[in-house]
Simulated scan of single mutants.
Amino acid sequence: MIYLDYAATHPMTAEALAAYARAAALPGNPASIHAAGQAARELLEEGRARVAAAFGVDARTLIANSGGTEGDNAVLLGVARAWQEKHGRPGHLITTPTEHSAVLAPARWLEARGWAVTWLTPDAYGRYSPQELEAALRPDTALVSIHHANNELGTVQDTPALAAVAAARSVPYHSDAVQAPGVLPVNLPEWGVTYATFSAHKWGGPRGVGFVYVRRGAELPPVTFGGGQEGGTRPGTQDTAGVYAAGVALSAAEAKRGATFAHLSGLRERFVTAVSSIPSLRVNHPPDGSPKVVSVTLSGADGEALLMNLDLLGVAASAGSACSAGTMQPSHVLSAIGLSDADARASLRFSFGQATTEAEIDGAADALRQAAQWSRA
């Protein structure tokens, strides 16, 4: 199999698997005060510290959780609840139509309950301007939520510029940064964001583990209640093995991030060149976006048939976000940037990792050419 679906999940690295096995063998709960519990606590905090070091922040600003979906929901719903309790009425949220469903769903849930939601307008590649954001801010704006790197297009936002606009009006800013680590630099102090969310399985760590960054001095009210773990913000026994393995995997990914970026850039250029001769194919991703992702549309083809044909030919790709797979709906990201429903349904996402080879790229390009012929026959 040629695996080109790294944006959906990055296979666990050897370092992460070894770290997970080591931590999983420990019997203690990290909240227990006995020696077994403290041994688990030591690995839990080492994993958190490794992640914090990669992002340039204090480890105490990171809340361990189950991943990006939980983190996005925790930020949007927690901030909204606190704002509404303080002011006695629904407030205003600013976000975008190209967000991951983990942001779109809670935003729409709030909108259905009286919150005003401003949906910014993307350009042809899914980028948002600081000027548009500034014009959208209102006295009752409780939160701005804009992703850093898009999971379908690879578009990278100017997060420092956008966050600065919100900060000038004392409005909290949240970035879903799930697709960035291991490929793009993540320096949270330089970004100036209030909150950011991450998933370890995007950088070669285990699935079901993630982090929410909460800037020092900011608050994140809990949306779940129980014990006092994670400062009471995310109660429940922590996944010691998962957090430790996440930290080990990110340390390794950061050590070779420059080489990874160069490698992925070469793969993306090679793939785009190889498939450019396929009739009616267009490239959707921006040339300056993340090199991890290639989005293409084959007008007149059936996207579902393309995926099945690729699978038969031994290539794993996707039609967009893995969290939206099986919905039979056109990609909301591609629709937002102006593609018709037919073209959005005829689109595929290929995403690469450090282990992807040039031979696999060539094989995938040949398979796409064959799959396109079959789907149009």
Results as ranks from 00 to 15, higher is better:
residue 13 T to F: 13
residue 14 A to I: 02
residue 16 A to W: 11
residue 16 A to P: 09
residue 18 A to D: 14
residue 26 L to W: 08
residue 38 Q to W: 02
residue 51 V to G: 06
residue 55 F to S: 01
residue 56 G to C: 05
residue 56 G to V: 00
residue 65 N to I: 11
residue 67 G to F: 11
residue 69 T to F: 01
residue 74 A to R: 14
residue 75 V to C: 09
residue 84 Q to G: 01
residue 85 E to K: 13
residue 87 H to P: 03
residue 90 P to I: 03
residue 90 P to V: 03
residue 94 I to E: 00
residue 100 H to A: 15
residue 102 A to N: 13
residue 107 A to D: 02
residue 110 L to V: 07
residue 120 L to H: 10
residue 125 Y to R: 04
residue 126 G to V: 07
residue 132 E to D: 15
residue 137 L to I: 13
residue 143 L to A: 02
residue 144 V to L: 00
residue 147 H to M: 12
residue 153 L to H: 05
residue 154 G to R: 02
residue 164 A to G: 00
residue 166 A to L: 08
residue 172 P to H: 08
residue 178 V to P: 01
residue 190 E to I: 01
residue 202 K to G: 00
residue 203 W to I: 04
residue 207 R to F: 04
residue 212 V to G: 06
residue 214 V to N: 07
residue 214 V to H: 11
residue 229 Q to V: 00
residue 234 R to A: 12
residue 237 T to S: 07
residue 260 T to W: 00
residue 262 A to Y: 01
residue 265 S to K: 11
residue 273 T to M: 02
residue 281 L to Y: 07
residue 281 L to S: 04
residue 285 H to Y: 01
residue 288 D to M: 02
residue 299 S to L: 02
residue 309 N to F: 06
residue 310 L to W: 05
residue 312 L to A: 11
residue 321 S to L: 14
residue 322 A to P: 00
residue 328 M to F: 14
residue 350 F to E: 02
residue 359 A to G: 05
residue 370 Q to W: 04
residue 375 S to K: 08
residue 376 R to N: 12
